[in-house]
């Protein structure tokens, strides 16, 4: 556990070293929200089916931008496989899965610590558009944590395909697109065509954006909360075993050069 916490702390320290980089991160996050707001304002003002929904849509996309930051991740295991540095990990008495998880938790802590500035900036500029809901922080945070783990394990499985593909960037892009459309990141679930929504409800992507938002905005019944928690945990366990299985198979194929 101490090693796990040390890795998290070291990742946070490294992130804090380059302050200009952090500043650019802030600006990028704010601009992303601004872009989504402009786009959806144009859509809401032109499409009668979104009439009167402008404030809901703007608030929703502010939520999307914040939650995406917290459940997102940047794993490095594929590059370790590609450049052969995975060999070092095979000799260490610490699992590379745990190392990646500790790094991503450190990243999430860093993100959470900087989000309040972004939220303040957004509230200052967009206050007239923001809808105040009867927030349920407990359920929101619960789904946020589950979303983080679902996202981590899906990304891990994709990264492990580097054993066979060497380059996994395209796979990651495909995954990002699936997340965008099926998690509610591109279109809120309530506006999705029924066919797509029914499929999205069964897949794990909804835990990355849609469920945390539904949790925070208190739009779930206790039955729905329970069902979705069970579903998320089942996905996390299944993805963990899938990742372990792929890693084991991949190691048989793995070759590294160097002395």
């Amino acid at each position: 556990m101490m090693a796990f916490i040390s890795i998290m702390r070291s990742h946070i320290s490294i992130s804090l070293t380059y302050k200009m980089n952090i500043l650019f991160g802030y600006i990028s996050d704010i601009l992303y929200v601004v872009l989504k707001c402009y786009l959806w304002l144009a859509i809401a003002n032109s499409n009668p089916s979104f009439a009167g929904e402008t404030n809901y849509i703007i608030t929703y996309f502010i939520f999307v931008s914040i939650i995406m930051q917290l459940t997102g991740n940047r794993l490095t295991i594929a590059s370790n496989i590609l450049d052969g540095s995975l060999s070092n990990w095979l000799l260490k008495p610490f699992s590379i899965f745990k190392y990646e998880l500790a790094q991503q938790l450190g990243r999430a802590v860093m993100t959470a610590s900087r989000l309040w500035i972004i939220i303040l900036a957004i509230v200052a500029f967009m206050s007239s558009y923001i809808v105040i809901w009867d927030y349920n922080y407990l359920v929101g945070i619960l789904f946020l944590v589950l979303g983080f783990f679902v996202s981590f394990y899906i990304a891990l499985v994709i990264q492990l395909f580097a054993f066979w593909l060497m380059r996994v960037e395209a796979l990651q892009f495909i995954y990002t697109m699936f997340v965008d459309i099926l998690s509610g990141g591109m279109i809120p679930y309530k506006y999705m065509p029924a066919a797509i929504k029914n499929i999205a409800e069964l897949l794990p992507f909804k835990f990355i954006i849609q469920m945390p938002i539904a949790g925070f905005t208190n739009t779930l019944s206790s039955g729905e909360i329970l069902n979705n928690v069970i579903m998320a945990v089942a996905y996390i366990v299944a993805l963990h075993f899938i990742a372990a299985f792929i890693f084991k198979k991949g190691l048989k194929k793995y070759t590294a050069m160097g002395g």
Binding site: Y18, F24, S28, L31, Y32, L35
Partner: peptide, 20 residues
């Protein structure tokens, strides 16, 4: 600046504006 991964992210975010 040495570490600029977020500038790349910022550039790509701004580039998204040209898509509309």
């Amino acid at each position: 600046l040495i570490r600029t991964s977020n500038i790349n992210g910022l550039f790509l975010t701004i580039a998204t504006f040209m898509a509309y």
